[in-house]
Simulated scan of single mutants.
Amino acid sequence: MAKVLLVDDDVELVEMLRDYLMQEAFEVIVAHDGEAALCLMRQERPPIVVLDTMLPRLSGIEVLRRIREEGEMPVLMLTARGSDIDRVVGLELGADDYVAKPCSARELVARLRAILRHSAIGKALSPASPPLEVGRLTLWPAQRRAEWAGRALALTCTEFNIL
């Protein structure tokens, strides 16, 4: 059972999504503002966060920025702001995926599972296989892990796929 931190100030939407995610074998923790989200993230260390951009007390963009400062936790942005510019900004700031509201709960679950499948945080690491080495770059594709000159690279799923 994967744990998900669901962050949105729309109480009705959160209840609906929480019920659906729980039926799909996710453990769901909920925050309705940015500050509470950061506190829960630090306490619970969920393998993935679903984050709205427009939140009280601390914006979703600021929450995303702070999550990225602290580590590699995957983040799926779920927001009413669905323009191309909003999506590009969210992805460039480090979101692993960006879904515009309204979306189906089924699509959200599929995207969460896809991110977790490709995340070293969200899956048990595969049996060891030899790394790929090109110059100072070392890749472990099964673990979706990369190093440059012996230092770990914090890459989003998209960045790793491009690499």
Rank of each mutant, 00 (worst) to 15 (best):
F160N: 09
A37S: 13
R18A: 13
V49M: 10
S126F: 08
L137T: 08
K101I: 04
A146N: 07
P102R: 10
P46G: 13
L112H: 04
D8F: 08
R42W: 02
Q143I: 03
G71N: 01
L51V: 11
S119K: 00
L5H: 03
R151S: 01
R144M: 07
A31N: 14
L116E: 05
N161A: 15
L91V: 14
E27I: 09
V4M: 04
Y20E: 05
A80E: 05
A114Y: 02
G94T: 07
I61S: 12
Y98S: 12
A105T: 07
M22T: 11
L132K: 15
T53P: 00
M1D: 09
L64D: 04
E159K: 12
L64H: 06
Y20L: 01
Q43C: 01
R151C: 02
Q143H: 15
Q23K: 08
A114L: 10
C157P: 04
C103M: 14
R42F: 02
K3L: 05
D84G: 10
G71D: 04
V99R: 13
R117N: 08
V14K: 11
A149N: 11
L17V: 01
I29P: 04
C39N: 02
E27V: 11
R45W: 00
E107N: 12
R45G: 01
R111Y: 03
S126W: 01
L116M: 15
R87T: 03
L6I: 04
V89G: 09
A120K: 09
G94Y: 05
R18L: 05
K101S: 04
A110E: 14
R113W: 04
R57H: 14
A80C: 00
V11L: 07
N161F: 11
R68N: 03
L91Q: 09
V7R: 06
I85Q: 10
D86V: 09
E44I: 12
L163M: 12
R65K: 14
I48Y: 00
V50F: 08
A154G: 03
D96T: 11
R68F: 10
R111E: 01
G94K: 03
R113S: 07
E69M: 09
K101F: 06
V4Y: 08
V88D: 11
A120C: 11
G90K: 00
P141M: 10
V30P: 13
M73Y: 00
R18I: 02
H32V: 10
L6V: 06
L64M: 12
P141I: 06
E24P: 04
H118A: 12
S104D: 10
E69P: 07
V49P: 00
A128W: 14
A80R: 05
V4N: 08
W140N: 03
L78I: 02
H118E: 14
V30M: 14
G150N: 07
W140G: 04
G90F: 01
A124H: 05
M73N: 01
R136H: 12
